[in-house]
């Protein structure tokens, strides 16, 4: 795998990943930030391919670029009225300082220690091996992860749906049956009306 193609790919993709990560920071609008994020995910998936981890790369594209990307877009759509600008708090300066200190330490550690790297051959087929590892040696974490996912899903639904059954929702939309799906809810522009007060 160490042909000149891989090195070229590595430099290109890491530039893409770091560039789009910076893009999130500097994007003017929220939605541009999400698109830069998804580009960063894609860049990272490419880096995984250069490390000949094909299953992980495809899983990354599927879970992150596909699902989490759409999830974040939905979240932005459901909170349309919050300021869409991508403005920062006063913590920009100190934030940068802390972040650069942390990453500086990591870079120092990475470059100084000599990892006992043995030039290992690449693995053409990783899917089969990951599958056997997951179902034999790491069976318990595999089951725990599935329980965690279900808990997260139920939690998310309860959180969002509970917020929707407040009384004023019901008299507002007349007695039609509840929302068909979040897609419709996302279509609505929501305005803050402080004037309602208690009634």
């Amino acid at each position: 795998m160490d042909g000149f193609g891989v090195t070229a790919a590595f430099w290109g993709l890491s530039a893409l990943a770091v560039g789009s990560a910076l893009g999130i920071m500097l994007a003017r609008s929220l939605l541009h930030a999400v698109l830069w994020l998804i580009l960063a995910f894609a860049g990272l998936a490419g880096l995984f391919v250069t490390l000949s981890a094909d299953f992980v790369a495809v899983a990354q594209v599927l879970v992150y670029a596909g699902a989490v990307g759409v999830l974040v877009v939905f979240a932005i759509m459901l909170t349309p009225n919050s300021q869409t600008g991508n403005s920062e708090t006063r913590m920009v300066g100190p934030g940068l300082f802390v972040a650069s200190v942390v990453s500086g330490i990591m870079v120092y550690i990475a470059t100084q220690t000599d990892w006992s790297t043995a030039a290992r051959g690449d693995f053409p087929a990783t899917a089969l091996e990951i599958g056997t590892a997951l179902t034999n040696r790491y069976l318990l974490p595999f089951e725990v992860a599935s329980v965690l996912l279900i808990a997260a899903m139920v939690g998310a639904i309860v959180l969002v749906r509970a917020a929707r059954d407040e009384p004023e929702r019901r008299e507002l939309a007349g007695e039609g049956e509840g929302e068909v799906n979040t897609a419709e809810a996302a279509g609505r522009e929501v305005v803050a009306a402080g004037s309602h007060g208690g009634h």
């Binding site: 507002l172 939309a173 609505r188 929501v190 305005v191 009306a193």
Partner: peptide, 10 residues
Amino acid sequence: MTNFSTEPYV
């Protein structure tokens, strides 16, 4: 607690 009303989507 401020509640919100849905602005009609015409």
